[in-house]
Amino acid sequence: MQVEFFHDVICSFCFPMSYRMRKVAKKYPKLEIIHRSFALGWEKEQFIQQFGSHEAVKPEVIHHWEQANQNDDEHRFNIEGMKEKDFLFPTSKNGLKAAKAAGMIADQEAYWAVFDGLQQALFVENRDISDMKIIDSVVKQTSIDFDAWKTQFENPETEQAVMEDLQRVQDYGIQGAPAIVVNQKYLISGAQPQEVIEQTIEQIAKEEGFQLKGLTLMGSDAAACNMIDGKWVCD
């Protein structure tokens, strides 16, 4: 069963949602989780359109952080630390390209590692994740081949892959992040509680005839040796 996880590195509610989705992935290892880009502020021009200026973004977004921190299971946001920083609020572009490049040279888990690393750097460590020096340092903390990642980051096809995700957002009609799309037809919108995510996925799996755990027995049982209470029992 395919699960598309739409998120942005600067999205405050994506931070708790990613934490929960990792638990979901562990509980249901048969799910195919694909990470997709959702840009809240691709470049500063988008911030200016939304807030009037780039400078106006940070005070408003910190208010969002307070709400997201309440949503976060671990309440990890360092809000006071962010208030003391003097850099403007990061844009999405470099961070989304960084995560996409990791996924392109490795796999979806590599994408996730960079994505979570960037969110940790912003929301907990209060670092400017639009700064390439910061992004480089985050990638170097993962197991990804840094030189290969850097080459892929600079390759135009990486930005094109991000733009394809953004087009998919429009095609699906998704209005906000985080968002989960299952099998290209079911939407889980927002940073839902863990139990709601799991219940919804189990309901969809039932409707789709997908077995989330274990194996489906084909045919009938035949003679075999089994381990029962620590002892071999053979038919």
Rank of each mutant, 00 (worst) to 15 (best):
Q2M: 12
F5V: 01
V9K: 02
I10P: 00
I10N: 07
I10L: 11
F13M: 11
P16L: 11
P16C: 12
M17K: 02
M17N: 09
R22W: 02
R22D: 14
R22F: 05
V24N: 01
A25R: 07
K26T: 13
P29V: 01
E32I: 08
I33K: 03
I33M: 00
H35L: 09
R36H: 15
R36E: 12
S37I: 00
A39E: 04
W42A: 06
E43N: 14
F51A: 01
S53I: 12
S53R: 13
E55I: 04
K58I: 13
P59W: 09
P59Q: 11
H64F: 14
N69M: 06
D72M: 06
D73Q: 15
F77C: 00
I79D: 05
E80T: 06
S92G: 08
L96G: 04
L96N: 05
A98S: 08
A99G: 01
K100H: 10
A101S: 01
A102P: 14
A102S: 12
M104T: 00
I105D: 11
I105A: 11
A106E: 15
D107C: 03
D107W: 01
Y111Q: 04
W112R: 13
V114D: 14
F115D: 04
G117L: 03
Q119K: 07
Q119R: 10
Q119G: 06
Q120N: 14
L122E: 06
V124H: 10
E125N: 15
R127K: 15
R127M: 15
D136L: 08
D136T: 13
S137N: 02
S137L: 03
S143Q: 12
D145H: 03
D147W: 10
A148W: 03
F153I: 05
N155C: 10
T158S: 09
E159S: 10
Q160W: 07
A161I: 09
L166A: 12
Q167T: 10
Q167P: 05
V169T: 09
Q170P: 04
G173H: 08
G173T: 07
Q175A: 14
A177G: 07
P178M: 05
N183S: 14
K185W: 03
S189N: 08
G190D: 10
G190T: 09
A191I: 07
A191D: 10
Q192L: 06
I197G: 04
E198T: 10
Q199M: 14
T200G: 01
T200A: 08
T200V: 06
E202L: 05
E202W: 02
K206C: 05
K206S: 12
E208V: 05
G209P: 01
F210K: 07
T216D: 09
L217G: 05
L217Q: 14
G219A: 06
A222E: 13
A223P: 00
C225N: 14
M227K: 13
M227G: 01
D229S: 15
G230I: 10
W232R: 03
C234T: 09
